[in-house]
Design a protein around this nucleic acid. Sequence first.
RNA 1: AAGCAGGCCCGUUCUAUCGCCGCGGCAGCAGCCGGGGAGGAAAGUCCGGACAACACAGAGCACCUCGCUUCCUAACGGGAAGGGCCCCGAUGCAGAUUGGGGUACGGAAAGUGCCACAGAAAACAAACCGCUUCGAUUCGUUGGAGCAAGGGUGAAAACGUGGGGUAAGAGCCCACGGCUUUGUAUGGCAACAUACAUCGCGGUAAACCCCGGGGGUUGAAAGGCCAAAUAGGUUGCGGAUUACUGGAGCUGCUCGCUUCUAAUUUGCCGGUAGGCAAACACCGCAACGGGUAGGCCGAUGGAGCCUGCUAGUGAUGGCAGGCCUAGAUAAAUGAUAGAAGCCCCGCUUGCGGGGAACAGAAUCCGGCUUAUAGGGUUUGCUUUUUU
RNA 2: GUUCCCGUAGUUCAAUGGAUAGAAUUUCAGAUUCCGGUUCUGAAGAUAGGGGUUCGAAUCCCUUCGGGAACA
Length: 111
Amino acid sequence: MINSLFHKGSSFFIYPYRIIFLRVDELQPAVQVLLSVSKRRFRHAVHRNLLKRRMREAYRVQKNEQLYPALENRSFGLLLAIQYVGKEVLDYAIMCKRMADVLKRLGEETQ
RNA sequence: AAGCAGGCCCGUUCUAUCGCCGCGGCAGCAGCCGGGGAGGAAAGUCCGGACAACACAGAGCACCUCGCUUCCUAACGGGAAGGGCCCCGAUGCAGAUUGGGGUACGGAAAGUGCCACAGAAAACAAACCGCUUCGAUUCGUUGGAGCAAGGGUGAAAACGUGGGGUAAGAGCCCACGGCUUUGUAUGGCAACAUACAUCGCGGUAAACCCCGGGGGUUGAAAGGCCAAAUAGGUUGCGGAUUACUGGAGCUGCUCGCUUCUAAUUUGCCGGUAGGCAAACACCGCAACGGGUAGGCCGAUGGAGCCUGCUAGUGAUGGCAGGCCUAGAUAAAUGAUAGAAGCCCCGCUUGCGGGGAACAGAAUCCGGCUUAUAGGGUUUGCUUUUUU
RNA sequence: GUUCCCGUAGUUCAAUGGAUAGAAUUUCAGAUUCCGGUUCUGAAGAUAGGGGUUCGAAUCCCUUCGGGAACA
């Protein structure tokens, strides 16, 4: 699944994120997400852990309003990879706002 | 009070809501309830152990490692106390006394090597300028013998200073002093110190080496169990067996060749005897090849933490009482809001704004090293003020 | 997680503990040419950081940093 996501998926940027997604028929559960922060950009494990936790929180809080309505009653599911490509650790407020943009864009892409 | 240096400690706290990961209960799942959830370095992986698998008669060699003494400890290359040496400060004319810091600190008197350049010479030999003496002399010098004090070179020059001695000199002799070997006495558990006698005098062992102590190897991807999957595969050895060969020779060994003997099935050649080729089930172990990439145990109650008493100068030990304090497996500790405390800035002097280091457990402990905003405490020194 | 190896000019490599760390290439300047190339001459440029041993350290020792490799 991960291989096919990275080889066949399409991608777009919304700073500080890079998103790769792939439509897959009859996926269970319907949306599966992979979060990643590059070791090359953030040398210390503290910062990588913090960013991944904040990304997960931002996704968790907003997925029900922004993403799931677009996928209701569809025959396909979604594989997602969200990579953090920013150069420094941003505040949660900004990360949360951008994640909302990401989810909206994903909803449009799947129409 | 300020500054500097060293040691030790803390390194935000509380509440609520939404999530995440373990644990316990309601005897299953789900759900609900209760309770827990990163550090002093979790880091580097530099040492030492526990634990595990394999190996192991005893001793020695080789290799690695440590190195003042005594003690602490499960152990250590760690720590405590003490000794020697070096550096800095204070007092003092000085000898010395005292305070602080550092110290890989066994042996150079077992042996070997090395000490660039310069210099006569870097420890064997030896002498550039010199010093003394005996000759020669064209009075400018020159040859032989002796010496190593002085000059010069160097990071380092044959122990330093003074005297005796001598043709001139030299630890050649003497006095004092420095370092050092051995012995005796005294003090100390000891390292060592002091005194006397005695032997000796370049450095280097983070050069080889010698002496003494220690070290079996590999690391949780150790190791054990279950499930799933693949090929009931190939080769070798052993067992069992009628049977998967055995004996002898060539050879240092293996392969191979020759010869003797025993033997099952099938195929081919052959009239037969016989010859050639192929195959041979089962069990165990090892290697090769192939497959799987899941779960459980190991794995979190321990050289454990807190408090008090106690032994000790101290590291640390003993006793009593109390406590349970992360356990994931691609990996949980995040977000929001409020309150309190700390720091900085601004001025309206009690309000507003901002900030909080280094950094994230992965089998577990004891150390070391490195990173660390800020705060507290303590010891020593210096300066100033007061009594 | 465990274990091991390496670090020298911009690059590729040298250097018994001993003058100012050497060579090729690269870069720059000059000469040659009408111009460029080639060639010639000259210059610049380095021991990963810190500490120790030593008269003297790229080399020996300790420590930190960075890079790489192997292992179910």
